[in-house]
Write a protein that binds this DNA or RNA. Structure first.
Length: 921
DNA sequence: GAAGTCACG
DNA sequence: GACGTACGTGACTTCG
């Protein structure tokens, strides 16, 4: 299995401190010592370390400092840096503090006598690149820009800007490879690099571009037109060559500390606290306290249980906020503390339609409020309670929700985000306790609802919604609930969310779930919210027409079925159908269900139909049409949102244990396609005028991943060559390829991924278990690796209790060691499948996260992502954009695993377009 | 609300 | 020899 690409951050500590000194105010610490630069340095380092495991963030980090003023460059040129003025008096004492600060973060501080920081950085950079790592040099130094190449960039933390080749070309006119030549020609007065007199950046870059390099410039000098420039180039050629050597970075020295030792572990608590207290950095201490509560104490790698926050729940302490002044106070506290849990209350479960009724905030355990916005009277006679006008409250809320220095915490934020987005409230940055819980505990015996998590982690039983609003027909809308009860319920949710976050967030890093959370699931939340808001257009007329056609067909079939049975009965009732088949008609029943009744499922009916029982075929036909009508043509018409005229599904981010999404209300991930009648339903999913639907799907992604993860040479080669994988399997297993053997091979390919038994395979292929076993043996023989993958997966699952995907997503299997054989074997089959299905889910999720930014960057802002169906993405776009968008979509999907995971097989993506979803396939 | 069935990947 | 017989979902109908 591949592991994520390490990303080494090399901080140019010396460079930073000089810039910080000049750019920051002259702060002093509690003892009156100057610490402006140290303060700036500390916050900068903290911000970097916080990015641990984020997209493009560090996995490894080191701070590089200058050890002494004399280096080998002074041996080359005694005037090197000779004119540099001494460091300002109030900066000198800050140098050792920089080392203290670095140590406080448990980050290695590297300095080598005789080498400048730039050289050490170059050595580490080259070594890391050679090892296949990504490198970011935290510096804005022009000398270090020489290092830029694929896989390495610079980061200027003063303005949070990434510096790549484009920047160098823009600034110096040449690519990073030629930057050294330009720097040599132009010289540097600060470092006292002589260069060539009269040549500045402009001339230097012009000359290098013209001649292609420093030596070429010097060689061409005598042929240049007479003048000062020509003379200087000739007279100072040696100085230019010396300068070239002075700016050349040394990159071949032995590393003082091996790369692996630079592993970044997170923000440590104790040493950092000591450092901050020593200087009295109060705002940073506040931040530490907050992240100690919520963030990972990363020095502890042992999964010790967190002390339970013993602030008891006091539902009557929650405040009901009905004045702007009070609301402002809560918002101010939230802003100062930097963390706020939020929950919205609405009148429904469909976020694209529900009305906002109020919201609750929590800033610390037990410290929560409810802000009612649209509560009516509790009955017809009573008056509306006084509330802040919605527009006013939202105007106050908006800046807090968008404040980049305040973390917003919610449980299933996707819902609240959608509600708030409809009021132009943007939420960022955020954490989502539902998504965190799923990243930690997928597959465990509890679901990830707030109520269950509160019980599980806080031992607290939440007020049930039905306790507040009742249930069934008499259920009240939340806006009818008296404010006192509404406050208890709503503020409790925010309080619980905050406490859950404190319990769960630190576990992410301890349990190695940060990558999946930060780089796959969390960034997906706003993407899914946007997709849900887009919805998809359906042709309700066409559905209506299909419904009546199906009704007609069903009626005809029903009559025939009743005649064949000899009496009327409910064809849709398996119980009654069973009685007709197995008692009245006295047919031989096969399998029996839990209740002891004979099964009447499609497999049984097919068997009977094959034996020439006419009623069986009729019932099969009737069932198919009944299913299509009730689940799709009838239901979908009802699901059209009157405001948008489109159908908006809801995706569950925690629905499937393997990491897949699931879709509900309506489920748009099971729209028919396999039968002719079914396909007609897909044709009712259409694009707006002037637009088309584009469907892009991964071809055979799970088999490809199996080939990679189990390391099966024959399969990997076949995918690399673009061969038909089922034909290959057919050839290997049966020695010939025809329709029949290819079909059987396809069944076997899938069966293996699901951990099928010989009985199961025998049943599917219509052969005996022994024959099936022989076929499985042959498969393992022909595709070595699969067997080992299965054995290893089961072994580690038994050992650790969970499986992992290539991206580190865990699925827990609590019954993998069950003494109940059926339970155990079921878990084993699921465990064999989970890494493959889960990796596939990770990959398409990453593609989704990157898709809209990639399209926007390509100048295609009008492409909208509408649906995800496990290995397929559906877009709606202007017809004119199809060609350009296809390229971007293909590219993003095909490269979605990189750079976190390098696959040894290509990811195939097939794209189709059409006026309808049916036509796009 | 459970059981049975079946739509999808 | 019993266990039950392919992984992951959601929606609908019937029926107690």
């Amino acid at each position: 299995m591949s592991t994520p690409t390490p990303h080494l951050y090399l901080v140019d500590g010396s460079g930073y401190i000089f810039r910080a000194y000049h750019r920051l105010p002259p702060l002093t610490n509690i003892r009156g010592e100057p610490v402006g630069a140290v303060y700036g340095y500390t916050t900068m380092l903290w911000k970097l370390a916080e990015q641990l495991n984020r997209e493009d963030g560090p996995t490894h980090m080191a701070v590089i400092l200058d050890a002494s003023s004399k280096t080998f460059r002074n041996d080359m040129y005694d005037k090197y840096k000779a004119h540099r003025p001494p460091a300002p008096e109030d900066l000198v004492p800050q140098f050792p503090m920089i080392r203290d600060a670095t140590r406080a973060f448990s980050i290695p501080c590297i300095e080598t006598v005789g080498l400048e920081a730039d050289d050490i950085i170059a050595c580490y950079a080259k070594a890391a690149l050679a090892a296949g790592w990504a490198v970011t040099v935290v510096s804005a130094d022009k000398d270090l820009m020489q290092l830029i190449e694929p896989g390495l960039d610079l980061l200027d933390t003063m303005n949070n800007r990434r510096i790549g080749p484009d920047y160098v070309i823009e600034k110096f006119g040449v690519a990073p490879e030629l930057l050294g030549d330009v720097l040599a020609l132009m010289g540097d007065s600060a470092d006292n690099i002589p260069g060539v007199p009269g040549v500045g950046p402009k001339t230097a870059s012009k000359l290098i571009i013209e001649h292609g390099g420093l030596e070429a410039v010097l060689a061409a000098a005598p042929t240049m037109k007479l003048g000062k420039l020509r003379d200087n180039l000739i007279d100072h050629a040696d100085n230019a060559r010396l300068s070239r050597e002075l700016v050349r970075l040394v990159c071949d020295r032995e590393l003082p500390e091996p790369l692996e030792d630079l592993l970044l572990k997170g923000i440590p608590d104790a040493p950092l606290r000591e450092f901050l207290e020593h200087h009295g950095f109060r705002s940073l201490l506040t931040k530490l306290n907050a992240s100690a509560a919520g963030g990972p104490p990363a020095t502890e790698t042992v999964a010790t249980p967190q002390p339970v926050d013993d602030t008891p729940f006091d539902l009557d302490a929650y405040e009901c906020v009905t004045t702007v002044e009070k609301l402002d106070q809560w918002i101010e506290v939230a802003t100062l503390s930097g963390f706020v849990a939020i929950d919205t209350e609405t009148d429904g479960l469909d976020a694209t339609q529900a009305k906002l009724i109020g919201f609750s905030l929590c800033v610390a355990p037990g410290l929560a409020c409810y802000v009612p916005l649209a509560h009516g009277g509790t009955d017809l006679l009573s008056e509306k309670p006084p509330q802040i006008p919605m527009a006013v409250a939202l105007d106050r809320l908006r800046p807090l929700m968008a404040d980049p220095s305040v973390l917003k915490i919610a449980h299933n934020l996707k819902y609240d985000m959608t509600i708030l987005a409809r009021h132009d409230v943007v939420v960022a940055p955020f954490d989502d306790t539902l998504v965190i819980s799923f990243a930690l505990d997928a597959g465990r015996q509890f679901n990830h609802s707030m109520d269950e998590l509160a019980l599980q982690h806080l031992g607290h039983k939440c007020i049930a919604f039905t306790d507040v609003c009742g249930k069934g027909k008499a259920q009240l809308c939340f806006d009818q609930v008296p404010l006192r009860d509404a406050t208890r319920y709503a503020a409790e949710d925010a309080d619980v969310t905050f406490r859950l976050w404190k319990r769960l967030k630190p576990r992410l890093s301890r349990e190695e779930a940060t990558t999946v959370y930060e780089r796959v699931d969390r960034p997906l939340v706003p993407v899914i919210a946007a997709m849900e808001r887009e919805g998809v257009k359906v042709d309700a007329e066409q559905l209506r027409a299909l419904s009546s056609e199906f009704a007609y067909q069903m009626a005809a079939l029903e009559t025939e079925i009743h005649e064949l049975a000899g009496h009327k009965f409910a064809v849709g009732s398996p119980k009654q159908l069973g009685e007709v088949l197995f008692e009245k008609l006295d047919l031989k029943g096969g399998r029996k269900g839990k209740a002891g009744a004979h099964s009447t499922d499609a497999a049984e009916l097919e068997r009977l139909a094959g034996q020439g029982v006419p009623i069986a075929r009729k019932v099969l036909d009737w069932r198919q049409i009944a299913k299509l009508k009730s689940t799709y043509t009838d239901a979908l018409q009802q699901q059209v949102n009157p405001e948008t005229g489109r159908v908006h599904t809801s995706y569950s981010l925690s629905g499937a244990q393997t990491g897949r999404l699931s879709s509900n209300d309506p489920n748009l991930q099971n729209i028919p396609i396999r039968t002719e009648n079914g396909r007609r339903i897909r044709e009712a999913f259409i694009a707006e005028t002037g637009n088309v639907l584009l469907s892009a799907d991964y071809s055979q992604i799970e088999l490809r991943l199996a080939a990679h993860m189990a390391d099966v040479p024959a399969l990997k080669n076949a995918f690399a060559n673009g061969d038909d994988i089922h034909s290959l399997t057919a050839m290997e297993l049966f020695g010939e390829v025809n329709r029949d053997t290819r079909g059987r091979a396809k069944t076997i390919n899938f069966s293996i991924l699901y951990g099928i038994s010989r009985w199961g395979l025998g049943g599917r292929l219509g052969i005996t278990a022994d024959e099936a076993q022989a076929m499985i043996d042959r498969y393992f023989e022909r595709f070595p690796g699969i067997n080992r993958y299965i054995a290893e997966t089961l072994e580690t699952t038994r050992e650790r209790g969970f499986t992992t995907t290539l991206f580190g997503r865990k699925t827990h299997f609590t019954r993998i060691k069950s003494s109940n054989q059926a339970e155990r074997q079921g878990s084993e089959r699921a465990a064999i499948n989970a890494p493959i299905q889960g990796t596939s889910a990770d990959i398409i999720k990453r593609a989704m996260v990157r898709m809209l930014p990639a399209l926007a960057k390509a100048g295609l802002p009008n492409v909208r992502m509408l649906l995800q169906v496990h290995d397929e993405l559906v877009f709606e776009l202007p017809e004119a954009d199809v060609e350009a968008a296809s390229i971007v979509i293909h590219d993003v999907m095909a490269n979605a695993a990189a750079p976190l995971v390098e696959l040894s097989i290509p990811l195939g993506v097939e794209i189709g377009t059409g006026k309808s979803w049916g036509a796009a396939h």
